[in-house]
């Protein structure tokens, strides 16, 4: 009897052992995310209900910080700037990336690797580096002004970063430059999962490149488009390096982003951690809402 039972018993214990091994494998990573991400998130919320400077934080009116936010002109400006970047820059970048990816997916194209590498190259430069490169290019005595003067378009250097509208445009140009190739790689990867024969069949059926793009590429890439849209939204809401290093938030806070303002309120001036935490919690809520909306919209078109 014991001989019959033996293997079953061993198998059970083996299964349990594998189960426990699985937990052991994933515990370090899970714990670290819990401690370094979820726990601070809860603390940020608790902090956002407290007011006071530096470490003299106290619970008073729990909504004081949230009310203050909407009366704070600089914060409202940073919210407006962030959404301006989101509404203008993200669609331009994603559409451009999609067009470039479908061009590079063409089997007959020569020098494909060269084009792909060149367009992806900006992503290899650090955020601080490219912000400073663009700051220098668009400086009063920078390269762009030199070219415009030599072409006779301008008489003296134009202070691109000193005027609100042009400073915003420079930031948008810089962002598109830095991130288009990054998104393009995702689309190229997605396109590789689509059978190329679909495109050949469309060609034989006499579909124009436009039709192929809208009827085949876009619908089949929808999951990837959704992924990049969510990533870009998330990234745009957290823009920091560009605001700080390209325009220093100026002129007169015309280009400051939410993260930059939160940084200033926490680490540049006398820290108001409670208020800064409230603003950062708003970013979290915005990220969550926008991701939810994008997923809903993404689902509907199925």
């Amino acid at each position: 009897m014991s001989q019959v039972k033996e293997p079953k018993k061993r198998k059970m214990s083996l299964e349990r052992r594998h189960n426990l091994t699985g937990w052991a494998f994933l515990t370090p990573a899970t714990l670290m995310i819990a401690v370094m991400s979820f726990w601070p998130m809860i603390q940020a919320f608790i902090l956002s209900l407290q007011t006071g400077k530096a470490n003299n934080l106290k619970f008073g009116d729990p909504l004081a910080n949230y009310v203050r936010m909407f009366r704070d002109n600089v914060f409202m400006a940073s919210l407006g700037n962030t959404f301006l970047y989101l509404i203008i820059q993200v669609p331009i970048m994603l559409i451009l990336a999609l067009i470039l990816a479908s061009m590079l997916n063409n089997k007959d194209l020569r020098c494909k690797g060269l084009f792909r590498t060149a367009i992806f190259l900006p992503c290899a430069t650090s955020l601080v580096s490219y912000a400073i490169i663009f700051r220098s290019l668009f400086g009063v005595d920078g390269f762009i002004n030199t070219v415009l003067i030599n072409l006779g378009i301008l008489n003296t250097g134009y202070n691109f970063l000193g005027h609100a509208t042009s400073a915003k445009i420079v930031i948008i140009i810089a962002l598109v430059w830095r991130w288009t190739g990054y998104n393009m790689v995702f689309y190229l990867s997605g396109l590789q999962n689509i059978e190329y024969s679909v495109y050949e069949a469309a060609k034989i059926d006499g579909a124009s490149p436009m039709q192929t793009f809208f009827k085949i590429t876009v619908p089949l890439l929808k999951p990837t488009i959704l992924l990049t849209a969510i990533m870009s939204t998330n990234g745009t809401l957290q823009l920091f390096d560009e605001s700080l290093n390209l325009t220093k938030g100026g002129p007169a806070n015309a280009t400051i982003t939410m993260s930059h303002y939160i940084y200033n309120m926490s680490f540049k001036y006398v820290p108001t951690f409670g208020y800064a935490a409230a603003m950062s919690f708003l970013i979290f809520i915005l990220v969550a809402i926008l991701a939810f909306v994008q997923m809903k919209v993404g689902d509907k078109r199925d």
């Binding site: 991400s37 979820f38 726990w39 998130m41 603390q43 970013i283």
Partner: peptide
């Protein structure tokens, strides 16, 4: 956790 923005956890 992918949705947690770093700027929100930075202060804590």
């Amino acid at each position: 956790g992918m949705m947690v923005p770093f700027v929100a956890t930075m202060i804590p």
